[in-house]
């Protein structure tokens, strides 16, 4: 998500298949006007609601913040996928690798966060092979909590 000076960086953490016909209280995907008219495609009108959790911010001048940010996204902001070099910049703010947003995510308390972090760390290990040792310490710690401690 971007505005003029800085972009909020987030990660997709949930997707919900959505049909506006069911559950009228939900967000409106289509402009309201159209719903007055009955059109055949209306029945096929589904959408995927993508949940994004903020990880931090990436400024134009490459200043990076991990964790809670000072801005929040506004309605209608454009969302785009990060390029690989942007992912690198985001994780190597001063040339040193960091995933400072992990404690922030864990504090979130969403039941799927640990799972998300597991797959995230696998992805990062691919992007930053030199950090795979430290990443696997973090990853194993998460996996243990998730798979062993929770099944107690």
């Amino acid at each position: 998500m971007e505005d003029a000076a800085s972009e909020l960086v987030g990660v997709v953490f949930d997707t919900i298949l959505f049909n506006p016909d069911f559950g009228s209280a939900g967000p409106r995907i289509r402009p309201q006007i159209e719903s007055d008219r009955l059109t055949p495609d209306r029945y096929a009108d589904t959408a995927t609601l993508v949940g994004i959790i903020a990880l931090g911010m990436l400024d134009r001048d490459n200043t990076v913040i991990h964790g809670v940010t000072s801005t929040s996204p506004f309605i209608g902001a454009r969302v785009r996928a990060l390029r690989d070099n942007e992912i690198t910049n985001f994780h190597k703010p001063n040339g040193r690798f960091t995933v400072g947003y992990v404690p922030h995510l864990l504090a979130h308390g969403h039941p799927l966060i640990e799972q998300l972090l597991l797959s995230l760390s696998d992805r990062l290990a691919g992007l930053f092979p030199e950090e795979s040792a430290a990443l696997s310490v973090i990853r194993n710690n998460l996996a243990w909590k998730l798979k062993v401690e929770q099944s107690k």
Partner: peptide, 13 residues
């Protein structure tokens, strides 16, 4: 043993 706990803590911010 090859990764110091301090390094892990640093990576976590």
């Amino acid at each position: 043993p090859a990764t110091s706990p301090g390094e892990v803590a640093r990576i976590l911010g």
